[in-house]
Design a protein around this nucleic acid. Structure first.
Length: 218
DNA sequence: GCGACAG
DNA sequence: ATCTTGTCGC
């Protein structure tokens, strides 16, 4: 069988996460944002095939300007806390085909709201040295209180006494989403930029486009 | 040992 | 993530 740089034992993967977590930058390190990208991954054939999609949108108009889709064999199982080892190879392959380089990434999943502070948004952000935000539909770690049912309101997500992100009401009457910095962005800015990419739906337009592309539908 | 657990 | 139609509510 062929080996792969991403084929790490869970133990080694965890060790790598602990080391890379130190490289995550939690303050804003970017200027003008002209393009924002949504990253999403889907599976088919009973998880045998991984589909990674990236949608690049103009900002602030949020119009789709470019999209990428890559399919490749799945080679790592889903293990909570090790998601990036399963999805990043395909994501990087898709990213490498882009002609329009985005200034900010919004990834499905968590950023530093992760057991070892290196969720997929952080891993990807550090790898690409690009500002990134983790946008999750559910919680991996952290505690939080009631989120006011008013669009834009949010409460802190705290893990082990550390503020790692926010639970954001991106839309009224809908379950909130879990925002956390991936890389080169603060929690406050992550919330701000996520809202700036969100129109009338629960998820940011970036994520919605990427999800649509990664989906098999047409 | 038991329960939790992104996609 | 994925299997899947209609249906209830703002």
């Amino acid at each position: 069988m062929n080996t792969h740089a991403w084929d790490l034992s869970p133990q080694d993967a965890i060790a790598l996460q602990k080391q890379w977590a130190d490289r995550v930058v939690l303050c804003d390190e970017f200027d003008e944002v002209r393009f924002v990208a949504g990253v999403d991954v889907g599976f088919e054939e009973n998880n045998k095939v991984t589909r990674a999609a990236i949608a690049v949108l103009s900002f602030p108009s949020l119009q789709l300007v470019e999209s990428a889709l890559v399919k490749q064999p799945t080679r790592y199982p889903y293990i909570p806390g090790l998601l990036s080892f399963r999805e990043m190879p395909a994501i990087l392959a898709a990213y490498s085909t882009l002609r329009t380089i985005p200034d900010l990434l919004l990834c499905d999943g968590q950023g530093v709201a992760h057991p070892r502070r290196l969720g997929i948004a952080s891993h990807l952000g550090v790898w690409l040295d690009k500002p990134a935000i983790g946008v999750g539909k559910s919680r991996l770690v952290g505690q939080y209180g009631p989120v006011p049912d008013v669009r834009g309101s949010w409460v802190a997500l705290v893990d082990k006494g550390e503020e790692v992100g926010a639970v954001l009401r991106s839309r009224q009457n809908v379950k909130p989403i879990f925002i956390s910095p991936g890389h080169k962005i603060s929690i406050d800015s992550a919330i701000k930029w996520t809202m700036a990419c969100t129109t009338r739906f629960k998820l940011p337009e970036t994520t919605r486009h990427a999800h649509h592309i990664a989906s098999n539908l047409k």
